[in-house]
Deep mutational scan, measured.
Amino acid sequence: ENVVSAPMPGKVLRVLVRVGDRVRVGQGLLVLEAMKMENEIPSPRDGVVKRILVKEGEIDDTGQPLIELG
């Protein structure tokens, strides 16, 4: 899985990584606010952040691509 998608609709509060960062499975990639709760979205695998497809403050839909890993 190279693309991390939104598991729920919500607002992107914080992006915790930058392009080029090495990430490990379970590491937080970004924080979504949904139903007044903050949810940290973890990396599904080890890899390198290739692209960040959303910006802080954006509203996303379920299934929307958020981050691409390489």
Rank of each mutant, 00 (worst) to 15 (best):
E58W: 14
G20F: 03
K36C: 15
T62G: 09
N39C: 15
M37P: 03
G57Q: 07
V12K: 01
G57H: 05
E40T: 15
R18Q: 13
E56A: 11
A34F: 15
I59T: 10
G20S: 04
E68M: 10
V48W: 14
L16V: 04
V3P: 05
K55I: 12
E68L: 13
I67R: 01
K50P: 01
S43C: 09
L69Q: 01
P65E: 07
S5W: 13
G63I: 05
V12Q: 00
R22L: 13
D61H: 15
V17A: 01
K50Q: 10
M37R: 12
L29E: 01
V49F: 00
V4E: 03
V31Q: 01
E1L: 13
G10E: 02
L29R: 00
A34V: 14
V48M: 09
M8I: 09
I52P: 01
I41Q: 03
L16D: 03
R22Y: 14
G70A: 14
E56L: 12
E33R: 04
M8L: 09
Q64E: 10
R45N: 07
A34G: 10
E38C: 11
L30F: 06
P65D: 06
V12I: 13
V3G: 05
V15S: 02
M8V: 09
L66K: 02
P7W: 07
D60V: 15
E33G: 09
L30Q: 00
M8H: 13
P42W: 08
V31R: 00
A6C: 11
L29N: 00
V25P: 07
P42F: 12
P65N: 06
D60S: 15
A6P: 04
A34W: 15
M8T: 09
R24Q: 11
I59E: 11
D21V: 08
M8Y: 15
G10S: 05
V23L: 03
V3A: 07
G26I: 04
V23R: 00
D61E: 14
L13D: 05
N39M: 15
P42E: 08
V23K: 00
V31P: 01
G57F: 06
G20H: 06
E1V: 14
V12G: 01
L29H: 00
R45D: 04
I41A: 01
R22K: 12
